[in-house]
Amino acid sequence: MRLSEGRDNLKKSRKELADKIQKLRDERYQARKELKRADEERKTAWSGLYSLVWGLSLAPNDAAVVFEFDDDKRISDINFQDGSSQVKVWSKPVQKKVRKALEPFMGKEPESADQDGADQSGNGD
């Protein structure tokens, strides 16, 4: 009877070990997925930050980006201002890239870049 008990214990131990291994594999898979997503978000954020800095480097002195924040300290709105210069600093692709990069910090869905274009129609397109 001891032999059959030993076999049962071995089967039980193998099953428990197989379950633990599967659980660890699932956790590793989830961690890899999260790492990949975080890396993609980092690349997007870097690209948006680069676009923002690049745009500001070309901007006349009165061009700006204005961030509005909600009570939770999250960005609630982004306004791109070209200023009085005839140079259009904030093209729609640049605005979209900056908004996309800042999405994780926004408290609501970002407004479309089309709205920004309508808001800036008097800034010398």
Rank of each mutant, 00 (worst) to 15 (best):
D39T: 10
R37I: 14
W46S: 08
A64E: 15
F69G: 02
A45G: 11
E40V: 13
T44A: 09
E40S: 13
Y50C: 07
D70M: 02
D70C: 01
P60K: 12
D71S: 01
N61F: 07
S47F: 02
F67I: 10
A45Y: 13
D39F: 06
K36F: 14
L49P: 03
A63F: 06
K43N: 02
V66E: 14
L56Y: 04
N61L: 09
S47Y: 01
V53P: 02
K73H: 02
D70S: 01
G55M: 03
G48V: 10
S47C: 07
L49Y: 13
A64S: 15
K43W: 00
K43M: 05
F67W: 14
R42A: 07
V66T: 13
F69S: 03
A63S: 15
K36V: 14
A64G: 11
L49K: 07
V66S: 05
W46Y: 08
R37V: 14
P60W: 09
E40T: 10
R42I: 10
K36M: 11
A45M: 14
A64F: 14
D70A: 00
A59N: 01
V66C: 07
R37N: 13
R37G: 08
G48K: 03
G55E: 05
K73D: 00
L56T: 00
W54M: 13
L52T: 06
A59M: 09
A45L: 13
D71G: 00
D62A: 05
A63E: 08
K73N: 00
Y50T: 11
K43V: 00
A59K: 01
Y50S: 10
L49I: 13
K36I: 12
A64N: 15
D71T: 00
E41H: 12
Y50F: 08
S57D: 15
K36P: 03
L56A: 06
P60S: 12
R74Y: 09
L58Y: 14
L49S: 11
S47T: 11
F69A: 09
P60L: 03
L58K: 15
G55A: 10
F69P: 02
W46R: 08
A45K: 04
L56C: 07
V53Q: 06
D70K: 01
P60N: 07
A59L: 09
E41W: 12
D71L: 03
Y50P: 00
T44C: 06
